[in-house]
Write a protein that binds this DNA or RNA. Structure first.
Length: 475
RNA sequence: GGCGACGUAGCCAAGUGGUAAGGCAGGGGUCUGCAAAAUCCCGACCACCGGUUCGAAUCCGGUCGUCGCCUCCA
């Protein structure tokens, strides 16, 4: 059974057949670095992080390239408003985003090319398109000649005639057709610019991705990813540019993640979805999220849903995922018994081996992470039941190791939350637990409960079990 | 207006022909001095209306609704 992936181009699931056996070349559109990253950016990064991790789990080597658009109108405007250098400003957001990704446990991509570091390849690409008749220069600008590309529109399902009949194109007399798009923009005063055969200027938005793909991955790649808001025009234009230049199929599979939606509760108790946007004032930055929650929590929000669907995000959803996370962790508590050859131990072993198989089955089906989580929770229940039945030793530890392994494929850490002071407070907490145990022994329950309650007030949870009292930090 | 996606229990969500996974929340047990954790039990006429079929959440048509794109956007 092979891995099936939904291809936006064909609008159905297709088996992954790589260009080179055992190697997946994957390019994912990154962000335009003009502001602090929000959880929508994080969602997209996490989706493709899971794709990458799973492909690696299934034995593929993955070359994973993510770009940064670091020259763009919004960056220039922002830099002017702040009185800063656009390139420096962009790099500071790049650094911030890379920190965010690390905090989110997203594996670093194989390369993070910037548009400004790809100028030579970009201008060469454009020159070659002109030479082939797919582009033309006009007053320092260069435009892609859409009419030359017979199958333009096949990714987004648009027909050129339909688009031209629309009224939303700016009329620009320098263009041969309103549908033509800019490959190169002549420099305006005060803007960053680079030399080119057409004069000083900067690249259009779409060309950088085509040029970076060619530079870092070659003329053909296996997977091209990004948010579904990029299908048109960005990815459509990438196909037009790349395939016009090379004459080869550009990307075999186009994967698009759905958009994160903010879920809010109405006064009448019902729920409503809205787009995250500055004008609505509902933007949640990665940093703001991580100040209040764990990375695994956001990971679970993303994993809970099919990546192609809109992803609801809100307070109730986050709270749910936090409790789910606690439940996943519950299975990692140590064994309380040591039985290794009881029926309960055998049963745990059976469930564990079945879990690995079903995990692969559901993930093979277009990365069904919600189904994969269900497998994890079945394993959690089996582990906890086994613990309650006194199972311990190797069978128990192997089941836990499997849970960690599969969770790891999804990018979940499952470490216990740690406070900076964790180490320092441990002896004191343990001292209090010992004293409380003495109090319980002599049935001084009011005092014992007071110790527990007051520790709870400090964020330390006590749980009495057959093996004594455990403690953990509550977040 | 054009293109596309989606509508499954209070919430999130899997399931694409044979009478509905999983999680959270809620209710009830077990365990516990109590609590917490764990564990057991309890919940759905699959938006609506037609059609195809022995049989549909699952296929087809229509209606309503939500969302995305068509301008920068993960």
């Amino acid at each position: 059974m092979s891995i099936q992936i939904y291809n936006t181009l064909s609008r159905r699931k297709e088996p992954l057949e790589t260009i080179e056996p055992g190697l997946v070349k994957m390019y994912v559109c990154g962000v335009t670095v003009y502001d602090t990253a929000h959880i929508g950016h994080a969602m997209s990064a996490m989706v493709f992080d899971v794709v990458r991790r799973y492909l690696e789990y299934r034995g593929f080597a993955v070359v994973h390239v993510v770009n940064f658009t670091d020259v763009d109108d919004k960056i220039i405007n922002r830099a002017n408003a702040l009185g800063r250098d656009p390139k420096q400003l962009a790099e500071s957001y790049v650094a911030e985003f890379l920190d965010d990704l690390a905090a989110l446990h997203v594996k670093p991509a194989s390369a993070y090319p910037r548009a400004t570091e790809t100028m030579g390849e970009i201008t060469q690409f454009i020159a070659d398109l002109i030479a082939k008749g797919y582009a033309y220069a006009a007053e320092g600008d260069v435009y892609f000649r859409v009419s030359r590309d017979e199958d333009y529109g096949r990714l987004s399902g648009r027909k050129l005639a339909d688009m031209l009949s629309g009224t939303r194109f700016d009329v620009d007399e320098r263009k041969e057709s309103p549908a033509d798009f800019a490959l190169w923009k002549a420099a305006k005063a005060g803007e960053p610019s680079w030399p080119s055969p057409w004069g000083e200027g900067r690249p259009g938005w779409h060309i950088e991705c085509s040029a970076m793909n060619l530079k870092h991955l070659g003329p053909q790649i296996d997977i091209h990813g990004g948010g579904n808001d990029l299908v048109f025009p960005h990815h459509e234009n990438e196909i037009a540019q790349s395939e016009s230049l090379t004459g080869q199929t550009f990307a075999r599979i186009w994967m698009h993640n759905g958009m994160l939606q903010i879920q809010t509760r109405e006064p009448d108790g019902s729920f409503k979805m809205e787009k995250m946007s500055k004008s609505l004032g509902n933007v949640v930055t990665v940093r703001a999220f991580l100040d209040a929650h764990e990375a695994d929590t956001l990971r679970l929000v993303v994993l809970s849903s099919y990546y192609r669907n809109p992803l609801p995000f809100g307070e109730t959803i986050v709270a749910d995922q936090e409790r789910k996370l606690a439940r996943l962790r519950s299975a990692l508590q140590p064994a309380t018994g040591a039985a290794t050859d009881t029926p309960a131990a055998a049963s745990l072993g059976e469930i564990a081996s079945g879990a690995r198989q079903r995990f692969v089955e559901v993930m093979d089906d277009d990365f069904n992470t919600a189904g994969a989580l269900a497998v994890l929770f079945e394993l959690v229940k089996a582990i906890n039941t086994a613990r309650d039945s006194g199972v311990g030793g190797t069978p128990f530890e192997q089941a836990q190791a499997l849970l960690r392994e599969l969770a790891g494929v999804l990018g979940l850490r499952l470490d216990a939350p740690t406070a900076p002071a964790n180490h320092d407070i441990a002896p004191f907490v343990e001292l209090l637990i010992e004293l409380r145990a003495e109090l319980r022994k002599v049935k001084q329950y009011q005092l014992a409960d007071s110790v527990r309650d007051r520790l709870a007030g400090l964020g330390i949870m006590l749980e009495d079990g057959p093996q004594g009292t455990r403690w953990k930090l509550s977040m």
